[in-house]
């Protein structure tokens, strides 16, 4: 059975490529990631009185030696966070090989320091889509308004994977303006077809809307039933139903709308809802269970 939430990145993302690049950095990243797993997302960082990195290599860093630079990034990521962020950011702005840049961005994401902002913003516009994706992930860790606006802009990126990554990132951190940007992305791709799943941007923006939208957003999403690919909407509803901050009433309306569809896919999703929440019966879970019994 398909798990509709299966494609979403888990909150404790461990930056596996960084592990491949250098064992030293991998160990550092795993330490950091382990710590991150145990914690909710950090609150937004303040950028006041922030020191900006220099676009010159940190002292004694030989950026022409990638192995050495990777090792220094690893050390910087596990030392003093502020200094580490400055050093890594300076190295990235001074120019490094792309694999080193990837590791550096991963490390900046782990450090989540405001001193990283310049480097992350620069790499959000990098010509390599893979580095833009990594920069998006790092940007989301900072959660500053400037970063959110920069992430929103990547919803319009020329690369489909980067667009989807931007939406996926916003599922964790979107504020009001970002939700509006997600709606624009969702509505753009809602009519483009691509079967029952929709584009990756549609799926991820739907999921983000379900995860970050208001009650009104949930009701608006319901108006897309039968108009947008069900696979994308299912991810939105699944995310919405998992939210503890969302009242039961909109959740019940979602389940009732799905029950009204009475399609095999709707039944599958309702079954999943009922099964996963068996121990926590609520009105919408009961409604899902009843609908499953009713839909053949």
């Amino acid at each position: 059975m398909t798990t509709f939430a299966g494609r979403a990145r888990a909150p404790g993302f461990v930056y596996p490529s960084a592990m491949r690049i250098a064992g030293v950095l991998a160990a550092a990243a795993m330490v950091q990631a382990g710590a991150l797993r145990a914690q909710p997302l950090r609150p937004g960082v303040s950028t006041t009185a922030m020191v900006h990195p220099s676009p010159e290599p940190p002292p004694e860093w030989d950026l022409g030696n990638s192995a050495d630079t990777l090792a220094r990034i690893a050390r910087a990521a596990t030392g003093d966070p502020r200094r580490g962020a400055l050093e890594i950011s300076s190295a990235l702005l001074a120019g490094v090989e792309p694999q080193v840049a990837a590791a550096g961005l991963d490390a900046l994401g782990v450090l989540a320091r405001p001193e990283s902002a310049d480097a992350i913003l620069r790499f959000l516009d990098h010509r390599r889509a893979s580095l833009r994706r990594r920069a998006l992930i790092a940007a989301a860790r900072l959660r500053t308004p400037a970063m959110l606006r920069a992430i929103e802009q990547r919803l319009g990126d020329p690369d489909a994977d980067v667009r989807a990554e931007a939406a996926r990132t916003l599922a964790d951190v979107a504020d009001g303006p970002a939700v509006r940007a997600l709606w624009a992305a969702f509505e753009h791709d809602a009519g483009t077809g691509l079967g029952s799943e929709g584009s990756s941007l549609l799926q991820e923006s739907a999921h983000a809307l379900g995860a970050r939208g208001t009650v009104e957003d949930m009701d608006h999403l319901l108006t897309f039933l039968r108009r947008a690919p069900f696979g994308a909407l299912a991810r939105a509803f699944d995310a919405a139903l998992r939210r503890p901050d969302l009242p039961d009433a909109p959740k019940l309306r979602i389940v009732q709308a799905l029950a009204g569809l009475a399609t095999p896919q709707a039944r599958e999703l309702l079954q999943q809802i009922a099964d996963e929440r068996r121990a926590r019966p609520t009105p919408y879970v009961e409604a899902a269970r009843a609908a499953v019994a009713r839909i053949q």
């Binding site: 596996p16 490529s17 592990m19 001074a94 120019g95 620069r122 390599r128 580095l131």
Partner: peptide, 20 residues
């Protein structure tokens, strides 16, 4: 100058964000 910094060494591959 920033353009030179950013791309003068921009050669080779990058591991995907998902790993590999």
């Amino acid at each position: 100058a920033d353009f030179v910094r950013l791309y003068h060494a921009d050669v080779g591959g990058v591991p995907p964000a998902e790993g590999g």
